[in-house]
Design a protein around this nucleic acid. Structure first.
Lengths: 236, 236
DNA sequence: AAGTGGTCTAGACCACCGT
DNA sequence: CGGTGGTCTAGACCACTTC
């Protein structure tokens, strides 16, 4: 059972997507939502906070909550942790598994995972495509002792849905380091680009709720097809 | 007067920076902070939420709040909107104004600012350096009618502190689009790189609290010296 | 079972926007 | 001035971790 504030957030988000507030661009007041959904005002505020963080609405004290123009659909939204399918819903998202093996952590992986060299890890290399355009090449390592089981079939689909729903893994938080570098020959080939073209790289470190690292990955993105979006408030 | 939850957050942040919790990596409990600072538990929770979003701590239900390893000091933290000085506190941050003029919005700027072509804007081109290394080249436009006044001297320092503190501008939120591309010859020269090297670009759009765009900028970052960090929770 | 964070409520009062 | 979001409180109960 998902908490009330999430349910309310989803309801309001659906309304926004269905252009319910198109005339004025203004949402209902917090009190109105509280009455409508039979919850307290604080619960409504937590729900709206989620939508603010996603970049869907903005709040003006004394005035109301307003829908933002969301030209956002072509970007990877850095607020949403889920992955491509949710960023590009309604578009064709494809995954090709290029390599899958059970191996052990080398120096670099052990360093990134803060584990010992030789720790058993699953290694997965995948090519992601959106609307038939190469999108990114992704090298991932998962700690075998923490994820219990993984196979090639699972990696064809959403690995994270499997971890969350089937393995009941308690995924907590993630760091992403974003930078640019030269594209190497192998990735250039896969992305349909040239060696030494620019590449947009993301080094991802994923933690369980208890702070243990169970997954590190590096994604090399097609510099023409991929842009990332970060929305910020001043309050932070 | 800053709200209580911010003050509490700052206090706890100072404690973290001073290694007060180093032995166990564990913060006090929420109830303990509530007693210590004479506030309600919800206020403590809002304070801790800020620290979570900054990536300083993580929460484990039933267990406590724990300090994260913060190797984060070499990155531009995408959570913090303030700018280089706060990301690289303790390091030498320098700004060289390369160009400053009062002009009017051309097609591209008008499009990005969602204003009419010909709207008066300040244009500023700046080179940023950290520890004497070229860091980024930044092209900014500010709507003259919204920022009232700007001059070259102000742009040498923190433009945003001036807007916030002196002009009392109500800055609300910002979008940043992050991508990679080839470095052009002019920026390569300024950054001490070669033409067609990779570049890490950020297109920034800044809004007042009422939703009006008053600043757009494009930063071209040195791909060897700049990495950006985004920390995420699952809750979003 | 005890400790600790997560959700939720009802209500008070303040700060800001618009008329 | 009334309307609306922003801050804050005190307290209840739940969910999870730890012993």
């Amino acid at each position: 059972m998902s908490p009330k504030y999430k349910q309310v957030a989803e309801q309001i988000e659906t309304d926004i997507m269905n252009h319910v507030y198109q005339h004025t661009n203004k949402l209902l007041t917090e009190d109105e939502y509280a009455t409508k959904y039979g919850v307290s005002r604080n619960t409504v505020r937590k729900a709206i906070e989620i939508l603010v963080n996603k970049g869907y609405v903005y709040q003006v004290q004394g005035s109301g909550v307003f829908v933002r123009d969301h030209y956002m659909s072509d970007y990877v939204n850095l607020e949403k942790l889920q992955g491509l399918t949710s960023d590009f819903s309604g578009r064709k998202v494809e995954t090709r598994v290029l390599d899958f093996e059970l191996t052990t952590a080398n120096d670099e992986v052990a360093e990134r995972m803060k584990c010992n060299v030789g720790t058993p890890v699953y290694y997965v290399k995948r090519l992601r495509l959106v609307d038939d355009h190469p999108f990114s090449v992704e090298d991932s390592y998962f700690r075998k002792d923490l994820v219990v089981y993984l196979d090639r079939n699972i990696t064809e689909k959403s690995i994270y849905n499997y971890f969350r729903n089937d393995q009941k893994l308690a995924i907590g938080f993630a760091d992403r380091v974003i930078y640019a570098d030269f594209l190497n020959a192998a990735d250039a080939e896969l992305l349909g680009l040239n060696e030494n073209d620019p590449a947009l790289l993301v080094d991802n470190t994923v933690y369980l709720t208890n702070g243990q690292i169970f997954d590190v990955s590096r994604s090399t993105h097609h510099f023409r097809h991929v842009k990332m979006l970060k929305v910020s408030n001043i309050k932070s």
